[in-house]
Amino acid sequence: MRAMIIDDSRAMRSILRRILAGLDFETAEAGHGQEALDQMTAGPVPDLCLVDWNMPVMDGYTFISTVRRNAEWRNVTLMMVTTESEHTQIVRALAAGAHEYVIKPFTPDAIVDKLELLGLVSKGALA
């Protein structure tokens, strides 16, 4: 499985990269939505994107909406990982095409739980 981590914080990307590496994902990283779109256009399409909301250049909401409009990327699973935590924001993200939503702060277990829900890792993968 291939995952792309899209977050403007290197510290946050590092945390997510280590969690995903423990689940045997190959990871790529981008600092904002446009950089992620460029990488996806040029290179291999990831199976999963972990997407922050507030980022420079292109935010995560715009990124998700853009990916969902492109039929070539319909198999990409999109999971928001963001500090945006209002009820309305989660509804907006889901409506735009996000499959799951993790609110920062989170523990590694939370990411694993959600990836299990999405069927991307099997139960007890970190055990």
């Binding site: 209002e86 989660i90 299990e116």
Partner: peptide, 20 residues
Amino acid sequence: SQVEMNRGMPATSLVRYFTR
């Protein structure tokens, strides 16, 4: 808490069955 909500709750159920 937020941390508890993150554990295994599908986002669709969170918005349907919980208020902030």
